[in-house]
Amino acid sequence: MSYTTEIQATARDLLSSDQVSCVIGYEVGPRGRTRPAFIYTADDADRLVWNQNCTHNLTTYLHQKLRPNGYTSAPAETERVAIVVKACDSRAINVLVAESQINREQVHVIGVACDGVFEGAGLGRSDGATLQHRCTECGERTPVTYDTLIGEPQAVDTLDSEHDLAHLEAMTPAERAEFWLSQFDRCIRCYACRQACPMCSCPTCLYERDDSQWIGMGNGLNEKRTFHLGRAYHLAGRCIGCDECERVCPVDIPIGLLNRKLAGEVEAAFGYRAGLEPIPSPLTTILSGKEG
């Protein structure tokens, strides 16, 4: 049985037995692109697919599904959804649970043992051969948390994830500043990176407040740099490295570099990698024991 038929069967089961009200998965659109799909009835479950263009991190939709009233009230306890996740996406579930954004009981996680997704997926530019950068570095092809597992758990060889950082770190501060300024200069502040991010869940983004005296929402280079660095900082110890922000960026800013850098810093300082377990990031807690 292929992954697609397994996912369809699981979704049909869950929907017909009323265990969930919605299954968030992938479908192939009319123009042949794989895109997110929201399935509400068992009859529609046939639309679901699995292929190596399933790049989107669907966990970003959980907020909308489980908190229809936003953050003014407690999550709707009755709502329950199922979601198709890859190994990387499943770590986002753990982070969201640790930060009390969602209840784990309200999510039926359909984990997929994935073989990596293709470069250009979701944009209709997939060549069907080249894996995305993050997939070549991925060490966990089996989801860390799931209720239903599709496929067999598998081990993979990993590459050194520091190699693209090393070349930047070897530069002088002035060269690095020049590199990042030329990147941030292209930013149009469309906030696509923020929208695609499952961790960016503030009801009002700090960087999109027009009443702030000290954070500009303008289009100057200063403000764009503050936005990107600040966003990277807010994701330190929380980013699970799905690189969706970088994929959706219309001007190809290598945001993933910042996130990987900080993930590395947090791992070096606290021995913590985001999302492996549903515990809060040590960056958001107080010092304990020998740390003091």
Binding site: P173, L262, A269, L283
Partner: peptide, 13 residues
């Protein structure tokens, strides 16, 4: 320390 390494990465001494 985290901010420090971030700003260093972005080109601040």
């Amino acid at each position: 320390p985290v901010l420090h390494s971030l700003m260093e990465f972005a080109g601040l001494e």
